[in-house]
Computed example of a mutant assay.
Amino acid sequence: MPSFQTRLKITGLKPGNPPEAVMDNAVESLRSRHHVESHQLELAGGVPQLNLRFLVEPTEYSSENSAARESAAVMRDAVERVALTGTLSVLRRSRGRWAPV
Rank of each mutant, 00 (worst) to 15 (best):
N25I: 04
S38A: 09
S63W: 14
V36N: 05
V74A: 15
A67K: 07
F54E: 05
E28W: 09
I10P: 13
N51G: 01
E20N: 08
S66G: 13
S29C: 14
V47W: 14
H34N: 12
L52C: 10
V27L: 15
M1I: 09
K9D: 15
E37P: 11
L52D: 00
P58R: 13
S66D: 13
E20P: 00
Q5K: 14
E64C: 02
L13W: 01
V22L: 07
L88I: 01
M23N: 11
S29N: 14
R93T: 06
E20D: 05
T11F: 09
H35Y: 11
S66T: 07
G46Q: 08
S66K: 13
S94D: 13
G96C: 07
R97G: 07
M23E: 15
E37A: 15
R31M: 10
R92Q: 05
R76Y: 05
N51K: 06
M75R: 06
E64M: 11
D24N: 15
Y61P: 10
N51C: 11
V56Q: 08
S66M: 12
V56S: 01
A99P: 02
G12K: 01
V90P: 01
P19S: 01
A83I: 03
V74M: 03
E70W: 02
S32L: 03
V79C: 05
Q40E: 10
F54Y: 08
P19E: 09
L8T: 00
L41T: 07
S32M: 13
V47F: 04
E70Y: 11
A67T: 15
T59D: 05
L55V: 00
Q49V: 15
V101F: 02
I10N: 07
T6A: 04
P2V: 04
P19M: 04
L55W: 06
R93G: 06
V74Q: 11
S89D: 15
P19D: 08
P2Y: 07
E42H: 04
M1Q: 00
A67N: 10
E60V: 08
P48H: 13
Q49W: 10
N65P: 12
L55Q: 03
M75C: 12
V22Y: 02
L8A: 03
R7Y: 09
A44Q: 13
P19V: 10
V36G: 11
G16E: 05
D24R: 14
H39V: 12
Y61C: 07
T6C: 04
A67P: 01
G16K: 05
W98Y: 02
V22K: 12
R81V: 00
P2D: 03
L41W: 08
T11P: 04
A67Q: 09
R92P: 10
P19L: 04
M1C: 07
E70P: 02
Y61G: 09
E20A: 14
A78T: 09
H35P: 00
V79P: 08
R97K: 15
